[in-house]
């Protein structure tokens, strides 16, 4: 089962290293990872997906919060969050096929960021599945290059989050600080 987590950390040299190093040496299976600024100056926010059962999730949380630079860790129930990803895709499209691709893009509410005689640069934002399907369709053309941010997530509301969290022993409410 996939879980989505967010970790807040002090923006110190090497902090990304500390987090990814911990995840790899503890043998946690990370599907995606994304780092950005948070609402608080000096604090970065990392969003990542981890595969495993609830005990694995609990271990990831407990181990992460032990890092001195990590100030907070939250796990989100999938249904309680808005999760988005951005992808940039360059496709080889000549003038003949351009119309077809533009139709596709319109359906997916994607945008064309750059265009030339030979190719087209497409940007798409949305849920992972939506991006997957557009990319799948674009593979019918010659897909030259692609980059994806990996999902970022934010909770719809704090109340919804707490209610949708499965009850586990020990209690898994939101942690602030904590760890040894």
């Amino acid at each position: 089962m996939k879980h989505i987590l967010a970790a807040w950390m002090r923006d110190r040299p090497g902090v990304l290293n500390r987090v990814t190093g911990l995840l790899s040496r503890r043998n946690f299976n990370i599907d995606s990872l994304q780092v950005s600024a948070s609402e608080e100056p000096g604090i970065s926010r990392m969003t990542f997906e981890v595969s495993g059962d609830d005990r694995t999730l609990e271990q990831v949380r407990s181990q992460l919060i032990k890092l001195v630079d990590v100030t907070r860790v939250e796990s989100f129930a999938q249904e309680a969050i808005v999760k988005r990803e951005l992808a940039l895709v360059r496709v080889a499209v000549g003038p003949d096929e351009r119309r077809q691709v533009l139709d596709l893009i319109q359906v997916f509410e994607a945008t064309v960021e750059d265009i030339s005689r030979t190719d087209m640069l497409i940007q798409i934002v949305g849920r992972e599945e939506k991006i997957d399907s557009l990319i799948g369709l674009l593979r019918d053309y010659h897909l030259l290059e692609m980059v994806r941010t990996g999902p970022v997530a934010i909770v719809r509301s704090a109340v919804a989050n707490v209610e949708s969290e499965p009850a586990l022993e020990p209690a898994r409410d939101t942690w602030q600080g904590g760890g040894v």
Partner: peptide
Amino acid sequence: LDKAEVGKNVQ
């Protein structure tokens, strides 16, 4: 003392 040790090997 260390929460990460709880449930790591034995629940």
